[in-house]
Each structure stands twice: as C-alpha cells, then as structure tokens.
Computed example of a mutant assay.
Amino acid sequence: MPTVGGPQSGKRKTLGAVAQSIMLYAAPIWEGVMKVAKLRHKLASVQRKMAIRICGAYKTIFGEALVIASLLSIDFVTIERTEVYEGQDKAVARR
C-alpha cells in the first residue's frame, strides 16, 4: 500500500487485522520462539511494517506506529493467546 493515498483507514485496519491473524495462527504452539531474541525481532519487524502501512505513516516512526494503528505488541498477544489456550486445556482436563 502506498503511504499517501491508497485505501482509507477502515480498509487498512481490516487488512492489518487479517495479516495479524495470519501471523498469530497457532501461536500457543510456537510461543517458545518468542524467547529467542533474533526471531522475536523478526516478528516485531513485520508487525511494525504492517502498523506503518495501516496508519499511513513514514518509516521514521518506530514504536509510535503500533499505538497509532491501535495494535498490541506481537509478544504480548502471543503470550495472551498461550495463556488462554492453556487455561482451556486445564478446564477440559478437569471434566
């Protein structure tokens, strides 16, 4: 997507939500990857590029892009989904 012009804000957010959903597919399974700094940085880099495209900003902003695009950090979302998944496993085991 071009930085200036292109789809409007709502369409950009929808495309970003789809991309983040794809990134987080099976997150509880590969959550251990987040402990390796190099791989965590790669995921954060992809998310940062996506956030910059969503908010239509230039490459010079860093962490602000996530805030402007209303996205949570990939680290946080991965841990959150893992905790929810493990909680569901424990609930099933108790039955």
Rank of each mutant, 00 (worst) to 15 (best):
M1T: 11
M1Y: 09
P2F: 08
P2M: 10
P2A: 12
P2N: 12
P2Q: 10
P2I: 04
P2S: 12
T3N: 09
T3P: 06
T3V: 11
T3E: 12
T3S: 10
G5F: 08
P7F: 08
Q8E: 13
Q8C: 11
Q8N: 13
Q8W: 08
S9E: 14
S9A: 14
G10F: 05
K11T: 13
K11I: 11
K11Y: 07
R12P: 08
T14C: 04
T14S: 07
L15P: 00
L15E: 02
L15K: 03
L15Q: 01
A17L: 12
A17F: 07
V18T: 11
V18G: 06
Q20S: 12
S21R: 04
S21W: 02
S21C: 08
S21Q: 05
I22G: 07
I22N: 03
I22L: 11
L24T: 00
L24A: 06
A26L: 06
A26I: 08
A27P: 05
A27V: 07
P28Y: 03
P28I: 02
I29E: 10
W30G: 07
W30R: 07
W30E: 00
E31K: 13
E31F: 02
G32E: 02
M34H: 03
K35S: 05
A37R: 10
A37W: 04
A37M: 06
K38R: 15
K38Y: 11
L39A: 11
R40G: 08
R40A: 15
H41Q: 14
H41R: 15
H41E: 15
K42G: 00
K42Y: 08
K42T: 12
K42A: 13
L43D: 05
A44F: 00
A44W: 01
V46H: 06
V46Q: 01
Q47G: 02
Q47R: 00
R48M: 07
K49N: 13
K49G: 12
K49L: 07
M50I: 11
M50L: 15
M50A: 03
M50R: 03
C55W: 03
G56W: 02
G56C: 02
A57R: 08
Y58T: 13
K59V: 02
T60G: 00
I61E: 03
I61T: 01
I61N: 04
G63P: 05
G63L: 06
E64Y: 06
A65L: 05
A65S: 11
L66K: 06
V67A: 01
V67W: 02
V67M: 05
A69K: 01
L71Q: 10
L72H: 13
L72Q: 14
L72I: 08
L72V: 11
L72R: 13
S73I: 00
I74V: 15
D75F: 04
D75Y: 09
F76H: 14
T78K: 01
T78P: 09
T78H: 03
I79Y: 12
E80H: 13
E80S: 11
E80W: 11
E80C: 05
T82Y: 01
T82S: 05
E83F: 07
E83R: 13
E83K: 13
E83G: 01
V84E: 15
V84D: 14
Y85I: 04
Y85G: 00
E86T: 04
G87P: 01
Q88L: 13
D89I: 09
K90T: 09
K90V: 10
K90R: 15
A91K: 10
A91L: 12
V92Y: 09
V92W: 07
R94E: 13
R94C: 09
R95Y: 10
R95E: 12
